[in-house]
C-alpha cells in the first residue's frame, strides 16, 4: 500500500518543501517514486533506465517546485498532475536526446505526448498477473490508462481526472467501461 496524503497534508507538505526541508522532499519522494517509476517503465520498458529517470524526475521537480501553483481546492490532484507533467517532459527530453544520438526517426519512438500506458508494461509485470495484464492489453489505451492510474498507481478519481484532463464523471464512466470490458475479456479467455 502506498503512502497516502490528504489535501490538508499536501498543503503543509508543499509549504515545507518550498522552505527546502529535506523531510518534506523525502515524503514527496515516498509518495510518488513508485508511481513515477511505473509511469516511466510503462513507456520505456527498460527497468534501469526507468529507475534512473525516476530520480531525474524528482531532481527536476525540486527545481520546478517554486513555480508550481497549487490548486488549494485540490492540492493532491493538482500536485499529482504536476508530477506527471514533469515526468512527461523529462521523458520527452530523454527521447530527444536518444533520437539525437541514434539518429532514429521519431516515428520509431512511442508517442511522447501520449501519457496512456502502453502494452509494454504488461510484458514486464510479474508472471502471476500475466493473464490479467494480457487481458488489459486488449483494452483501448484510455481504458488501460485509467486502470493503470486507478489500480496500479492508486490515484483517486479526482487525480486521474486531473492527470488525464477529464472530468471526474468522465473518469468514473471510463473506469466503469474499462472494468466491464476487462471482465468480459477475462471471461472469454476463461471459456477458451
Amino acid at each position: 500500500m502506498q503512502d497516502v496524503c490528504s489535501d490538508a497534508d499536501m498543503l503543509v507538505l508543499l509549504e515545507a518543501a518550498r522552505r527546502g526541508e529535506p523531510a518534506a522532499y523525502d515524503r514527496i519522494y515516498n509518495l510518488y517514486a513508485d508511481r513515477v517509476f511505473r509511469y516511466l517503465y510503462a513507456r520505456i520498458g527498460q527497468r534501469e533506465v526507468a529507475e534512473d529517470l525516476t530520480a531525474d524526475v524528482f531532481v527536476r521537480l525540486l527545481k520546478n517546485l517554486p513555480r508550481f501553483k497549487v490548486n488549494r481546492a485540490r492540492p493532491v490532484a493538482s500536485f499529482s498532475a504536476f508530477v506527471y507533467r514533469v515526468a512527461g517532459n523529462l521523458l520527452t527530453d530523454q527521447y530527444r536526446k536518444q533520437k539525437h544520438r541514434d539518429h532514429q526517426d521519431i516515428d520509431d519512438q512511442p508517442d511522447l505526448a501520449d501519457r496512456r500506458p502502453e502494452p509494454l508494461i504488461l510484458t514486464t509485470i510479474a508472471e502471476s498477473s500475466r493473464e490479467l495484464m494480457s487481458a488489459m492489453a486488449k483494452l483501448g489505451q484510455e481504458q488501460q490508462a485509467v486502470l493503470l492510474y486507478r489500480f496500479g498507481e492508486e490515484f483517486s478519481v479526482l487525480e486521474v481526472a486531473e492527470i488525464m484532463g477529464k472530468t471526474t464523471g468522465a473518469i468514473k464512466a471510463l473506469q466503469h467501461r474499462a472494468i466491464a470490458n476487462l471482465r468480459r475479456i477475462l471471461s472469454a479467455e476463461a471459456l477458451q
Binding site: D34, R38, R47, T124, S128, F151, H176, L182
Partner: peptide, 16 residues
C-alpha cells in the same frame, strides 16, 4: 465489477 477490480488491486505492478 468489484471482483475484477480486486484482481487488479492484487496484481503485481512494478515497483522501484
Amino acid at each position: 465489477l468489484l471482483a475484477t477490480a480486486a484482481k487488479l488491486r492484487r496484481a503485481d505492478w512494478p515497483v522501484l
